[in-house]
Design a protein around this nucleic acid. Sequence first.
DNA 1: TGCCAGGCCGGGT
DNA 2: ACCCGGCATGGC
Length: 213
Amino acid sequence: MASLQEYFDALLAHYGPPKWWPAETPFEVMVGAVLTQNTAWKNVEKALHNLKTYDLLDARKIHELDQDTLALAIKPAGTYNLKAARLKGFVAWFLQRFDGDLEKMRQVPPQRLRDELLEVKGIGPETADAILLYALGMPSFVVDAYAHRVLTRHELALDEATYDDLKEYFEKNLPRDAALYNDFHALIVSVGKEFCRPKARCEACPLKPFLPR
DNA sequence: TGCCAGGCCGGGT
DNA sequence: ACCCGGCATGGC
């Protein structure tokens, strides 16, 4: 059976080094992580563009803004009332807990920070891991629907595997390296979008050599 | 033109 | 402990 490292190498050879997360600042990563929940990234881009246009991509400004106005600004991202509430909650926590200071946030060990993030309403495991990895550069593997599809398709995981099962599988079988986690997740999204959608066409997939049987 | 996207929560079993 | 409906826009 092929190792995860071989999967990574094959993906890297096919797609080249990915450039992720597309954002100008760590705070933008954190906001984007919330906005992209069950949402196409294209729509998130529009919402982020609105926030930038109105100069609202800032923790204190979002904190002071009323929720309905925020919802209006992020409307293109969908589920905007929900996300406005989640962003407000997250930002309130970020300001209260760390004074809105990323450096203070970095002082907390990743495992503990992850637990704290999960306490925030609207921050689930994937969003927490995306913040840890892509905003803070901490080695916390980001699992998503694509990772689940790829692993089950290759019979490396069961259909009923939980988020934590998959996360553990990646982390136990790879060196604990944030740069590797970063690129691997991005590459999985690439291959997942292109070849591992519900209607799969595995013939041209760069991971085809590793398919079982 | 429906289906679904880089999830998560809350209420009901 | 699981299961499921709700959230909602815009692209394909």
